[in-house]
Design a protein around this nucleic acid. Structure first.
Length: 110
DNA sequence: GCAGTGACGGATA
DNA sequence: GTATCCGCCACTG
């Protein structure tokens, strides 16, 4: 039976597949799940992903490469520090060369 | 049940 | 390129 929160689980499942050093956007995940206009809900799922332990929400940023959700982590610097550890470069709360580190869920089918 | 809000994104002006 | 509006889904008051 599909619950109304099934969308959240779908989002978490995709986010779990994001390889280290890579990032994706809310819209990309939403579109991959068949809801190209539900990027906001993806963000909401990320907020709820705190109860999960295998969801690297720090690898999900907005389409602008901006760390829009850093303030929602345990510490406002946790997201940035974690991305830096994975070899990414952060400047002004934004990922440098975001397009180069962008990971699309379609890669799962490769 | 209605209105407002949110870790967004695309279209339009 | 900037500013504004609309849409989408889930949650709260």
């Amino acid at each position: 039976m599909s619950s109304n929160t099934d969308f959240f689980e779908q989002v978490w499942e995709v986010v779990r597949q994001i390889p280290p050093g890579k990032v994706t956007s809310y819209g990309a995940i939403a579109s991959f799940l068949g809801h190209p206009r539900s990027a906001r809900t993806v963000g909401y799922a990320m907020n709820a992903s705190h109860q999960q332990n295998d969801v690297p929400a720090h690898r999900v940023v907005n389409r602008n490469g901006l760390l829009s959700g850093k303030m929602h982590f345990s510490s406002p610097t946790e997201m940035e520090e974690r991305l830096l550890q994975e070899g990414l470069t952060i400047q002004e709360n934004q990922i440098v060369d975001f397009e180069k580190h962008f990971w699309n869920p379609e890669e799962l089918f490769k």
